[in-house]
């Protein structure tokens, strides 16, 4: 598999150097792997810190900036960052108002953020955590690692960031972030497998003419494989899977997300089908975001995330944001 890289070992560091060069508003510590908004800590405001394996860009580093994340910790490709990074990020953004960790529900992320929270508290930083676990493809039971955090992460980070920006205290920001997390549901499909730089070839075998339903964002295979479906059929399937789990009473935010290698032309066509089926099912869409936001390297495919919102959450969603990947109202 051809890749635009030097050697697999330096992929993350190379990207961070490029990010630093492109975004002077960010302070990028390449060696310690922390991306921080340059004006941090912001007096009187809660810091929002997230992080996770690399390979999901623009998540999380591309969401650092006023109105969203205060800092992000990129791990190796598809590997949770280490506690040292998170403690460093927390210390850099804590104004004394405390820090919220936004954690995607993967065993590694949870363990490392838990360790980091303990270490940060030892340093006198008040830390709260919110877990994102929105992927309906995973059966949530005591006997699994629980649902994965995927597209819902964008909603949590944006709305928590807006809440912090308004000067809300940590406890309130945490409550809002949890509300968004609990109101979010996602479902993803892969048309191709993903190739990590370390492996250099697809991590699972997905033949031409088939697609994988219920995939995560790490090239882990999904739960079911079928003959290739049309955009219309995929939208029907994905939305049905979500609505089986959460039937919204109010309006929703919709994220129609590309996995990395699906052209926007296809993604917008897919969004038309998603909006059609939501209309048929009586779901009101308040806002829609279409694009590659929570990706899986070079995977072709898409995911749909819905988040049920009330007026307060919608106001926070609409609030100004100024990050490399999400930017409006300022």
């Amino acid at each position: 598999m051809k890749m635009l890289i030097n050697v697999p070992e330096t992929v993350v560091a190379d990207a961070l150097r490029g990010m630093a060069a492109a975004h002077p508003d960010l302070s990028v510590d390449v060696e310690n792997r922390v991306v921080v908004r340059r004006d941090a800590p912001v007096a009187g405001k809660v810091g929002i810190v997230s992080g996770g394996g690399s390979g999901h860009e623009p998540l999380h580093g591309g969401f650092v900036g006023p109105g969203m994340l205060s800092a992000a910790c990129p791990g190796e490709v598809f590997t949770s960052p280490v506690p040292d990074q998170m403690v460093r990020a927390a210390a850099a953004v804590d104004s004394g108002s405390g820090v919220l960790f936004v954690v995607k529900n993967y065993t590694g992320d949870v363990l490392n953020f838990d360790m980091a929270a303990e270490l940060a508290e030892d340093e006198g930083i008040q830390v709260a955590k919110v877990l994102v676990h929105d992927d309906v493809a995973v059966t949530d039971s005591l006997f699994t690692a629980g649902r994965r955090g995927t597209g819902g992460t964008l909603f949590v980070e944006k709305i928590a960031g807006a809440a912090a920006d308004e000067g809300m205290p940590l406890e309130r920001v945490e409550t809002i972030a949890r509300q968004v997390s609990e109101a979010s549901r996602s479902f993803g499909v892969a048309l191709t497998a993903v190739s990590t730089p370390a492996k250099g070839s697809p991590t699972f075998d997905l033949p031409e003419g088939e697609l994988e339903l219920g995939i995560g964002i790490h090239g882990e295979p999904g739960r079911e494989r079928r003959a290739m479906m049309t955009s219309r059929e995929i939208a029907d399937f994905a939305v049905a899977a979500i609505l089986e789990d959460l039937q919204p009473r109010g309006p929703v935010l919709a994220l129609v997300n590309g996995m990395g290698a699906t052209p926007l032309l296809e993604l917008y066509g897919f969004n038309a089908e998603v909006q059609r089926v939501l209309g048929e099912r009586g779901v009101t869409v308040a806002r829609t975001l279409v694009g590659n936001y929570v990706t899986s390297l070079d995977m072709a495919g898409c995911s749909v995330t819905l988040c049920e919102v009330d007026d307060d959450l919608l106001r926070l969603w609409d609030a100004p944001v100024s990050t490399p990947a999400l930017r409006w109202g300022r």
């Binding site: 394996g53 949770s80 960052p81 280490v82 065993t107 490392n112 360790m115």
Partner: peptide, 9 residues
């Protein structure tokens, strides 16, 4: 401090 993921912790 160096591994990350689940296997590090």
């Amino acid at each position: 401090s160096t591994v990350g993921g689940a296997s590090g912790p």
